[in-house]
């Protein structure tokens, strides 16, 4: 569905060149749900905008839905749907009018466009608002209308740029429910960008982590977490017996850092433990045998944030500031 070869984009801002995307190779098969994850300014939106022909690549090639983005941008646009970061509905227009015209822009006839608009309004809980002007909609309603606009022509490949930024958790869940349902019904291929790691984690089958214009990881969220970041283990032992387990925990961390702090006669060790859930019981026994039984244990599965930290040494939330 998507194939890119060293796709790159360089901007010139006030005589300074910025390499926003530094040659990315992406392959997406039909039916996949892929998230581009990265901090703000990482280049994920720029990549998406090249794939949707809203930006022309500086170098490299991209074929989207079988069509080259540089040779036939209009052909690409006819075959994809795009839901941008902003709200797509014109402020003074009526909801239904915008949907029908969107269908017409894609070459649907007026009867089909009207039927499809009604169907989408129904399934996105907007049916009562069909004749309302866009400016009178709430934020969540506008976002759902954006989804409706993007789905009007039933694209087989749908791009979403930061679909849920600024939405409250309930609206986010609601939005995702709709997107997932469309996907199940039509087998739509979906590519989205997000800087919410939990969104990439729970919704996507495949996560492409982008940082400083490069792809630094590309796999399922589960495998990324298992391979790149262990579970976070915190164990507490009595201060008197702490010395006996330091070496043991150091070996368990397999070269990773073991931090400790002590309070009230207790020492709390924290370390990354690959496959923590499987190894923790054995570790507890070893600690017991070493004369330092654990007084408490906490095991946290890794997040994509941990993966990003492991890959870049930075926190995903810290954004693009080096």
């Amino acid at each position: 569905m998507i194939h890119t070869d060293k796709l790159a984009k360089t901007f010139t801002v006030k005589k300074e060149t910025v390499d926003a995307v530094k040659g990315v190779d992406i392959d997406v098969a039909p039916g996949e749900l892929v998230a581009f994850l990265g901090p703000n300014g990482a280049g994920k939106s720029t990549t998406l905008r090249m794939l949707t022909t809203l930006l022309t690549p500086t170098s490299g090639t991209a074929r989207v839905a079988g069509v080259d983005v540089t040779a036939d941008p209009a052909g690409v646009r006819a075959r994809i749907g795009y839901i941008g970061q902003g709200n797509g509905g014109g402020h003074s227009f009526r909801v239904i009018d915008e949907l029908v015209m969107q269908g017409r822009f894609y070459g649907m006839n007026s009867a089909d466009a009207l039927a499809r608009a009604r169907e989408l309004l129904q399934s996105l809980d907007l049916a009562d608002l069909a004749k309302r002007t866009v400016i009178k909609l709430s934020g969540g309603q506008r976002r759902r209308m954006d989804v409706a606009l993007g789905l009007m022509h039933s694209p087989r490949l749908l791009f979403l740029d930061e679909p849920s930024t600024g939405m409250d958790p309930q609206n986010r869940a609601n939005l995702w429910e709709h997107i997932m349902r469309m996907r199940e019904e039509h087998g739509t291929t979906i590519v989205l960008t997000t800087h919410y790691m939990d969104e990439a984690d729970s919704m996507s089958e495949r996560v492409i982590i982008i940082d400083h214009g490069r792809i630094i990881a590309d796999d399922t969220a589960a495998r990324l977490k298992a391979n790149l970041a262990g579970d976070l283990l915190a164990v507490e032992v009595a201060a008197a017996s702490a010395a006996g387990v330091r070496g043991l925990l150091g070996r368990a961390a397999a070269g990773g850092e073991v931090s400790e702090n002590s309070y009230d006669g207790v020492v709390r060790f924290r370390l990354r433990l690959p496959e923590g859930a499987r190894l923790a019981p054995g570790l507890l026994l070893e600690m017991h045998d070493a004369g330092a039984p654990a007084q408490s244990l906490e095991l946290k599965p890794p997040t994509l944030d941990d993966v990003f930290l492991e890959l870049t040494g930075r926190n995903l939330r810290e954004g693009a500031n080096r």
Binding site: L54, A78, I80, G86, N87, G89, H91, Q102, F105
Partner: peptide, 18 residues
């Protein structure tokens, strides 16, 4: 100008319209 401020212009730019 209004459509440039919201995402309306971009949405239409992403359609196959010439």
């Amino acid at each position: 100008q209004y459509e440039l401020m919201t995402g309306s212009y971009e949405r239409i730019l992403a359609t196959p319209l010439s």
